Simulated scan of single mutants.
Amino acid sequence: MKQCPIDFFDPEVQHLAASAGCRLYRMQNDTGEGLISEYPILSGIDLFYNDFHMKDGQNQNKRPMPDTIEINHCREGRFECEFQNGDYQYIGAGDLSIHRLSHTTRQTRFPLAHYHGISITIDLPRAQQTLSSLEAIIGDLDIHLEAIAERFCREESCYVLRSNREVAHIFSELYAAPPERMAHYLKAKVLELLMLLNDLPQEPFSEKRQFFSRSQVTAVRAIHDAMIQDLSHHYTLAELSRQFGIAQTSMKLCFKAVYGNSIYQYMKTYRMQTARVLLQDTSRSVTEIAATLGYDNPSKFSEAFKKEYGISPTLFRNSPSELDVS
């Protein structure tokens, strides 16, 4: 996930290639790798396709840039940003965030170990001058970038837009942009997005995103690690709260922000995904797997597995291709 402009990427980000109006970058560390495709749209406006398969990103915004806004759309996964003041912020699948690059970031992470999305960075003075020059040729575009920034980035906050069909439609077309017409197509779609944001009311589609403290995020990560290390044990919320020193309300809110689901739903899904791996890659019996995953008896485990995947554990083991994973 970039923090504009590309020159502010860490030196470890490798420039791979440049062709047909696109520059390709690779980020690598011991948690995985990510690919970033940069497309200059207009002077002052750049678009980036982000494809990460890693847990830890890098500090990419080395200094505040209050005259630049960043629009991020998350297609899959989750993105975590840690600011220098110790606050954390998250966006998840379907979210569109808008914020000024006013704060330096300490670290970026991907809690689900993957992230796919689009970033658009806009240098407000330069981009508005570009739009003014364009209007002299094609007529009034009615795009006022500073007004967009003021509406959605008040008090230097990050706002998230959701549940808007027009926004979703524009980004679905950006993800499916035809390669042979990429350069011109992206210009048209980004201008369409800006015209939409110019007229889009802040409510009811936006919400002020909650920040979490470093101590809360650290506690939630420890909770996550403890739960997945011993799947045979079913922790209660009270037990987790007491053991890791975090209030239940804060724990539930922060866990969902970091991992995208409630503790109960996340662990239910994690157990079922682990069950699939154990059934397919080991010779352990269904009874043994059920006990490993914390089920009192194999019939309860079989019932839960079939409810999740529409197929019994035994049938899946014998015919894994029968499982519908769509």
Rank of each mutant, 00 (worst) to 15 (best):
L16M: 12
D30S: 07
D7N: 15
T121C: 14
Y115E: 03
C254H: 04
I6G: 07
E135D: 03
F305E: 03
E288T: 15
V286T: 13
F205C: 07
E239L: 10
S157K: 11
I170A: 05
R106W: 01
N261F: 00
Q210E: 07
L293A: 02
T121I: 05
F48E: 09
E166H: 11
A177C: 14
I246K: 03
H116Y: 12
S312D: 01
H233I: 08
P298M: 04
L196F: 05
C81I: 14
L279A: 05
Q84C: 14
S19D: 09
E70N: 06
C22M: 10
Y175I: 09
P178Q: 09
I36K: 04
L42C: 12
P320K: 03
V258I: 11
Y88M: 00
E303F: 00
S302R: 08
A291H: 11
L193Y: 04
Y88V: 00
I71H: 06
P40L: 00
M267F: 10
Q128G: 07
R100M: 02
K256Y: 00
R317M: 03
H53W: 08
Q248F: 03
M1G: 11
R214G: 12
V13G: 07
V217E: 04
F244K: 00
P5N: 01
A176E: 13
H169C: 13
H103Q: 09
L315N: 13
E303D: 04
V160G: 03
E80K: 01
M1Y: 12
D30W: 07
R126Q: 15
K208L: 13
E308T: 11
G294D: 00
E70Q: 05
I170Y: 04
I69P: 10
A18Y: 09
S43W: 07
F205Q: 06
F83V: 02
I170M: 01
M267R: 10
I137D: 03
T287H: 09
E207R: 06
A177Y: 10
D281S: 14
Y259M: 01
L197C: 00
S19W: 08
G245P: 01
N59F: 12
D51G: 08
L24K: 11
C158G: 05
L293T: 01
G117A: 05
I6T: 15
D51S: 13
R75A: 15
Q265H: 12
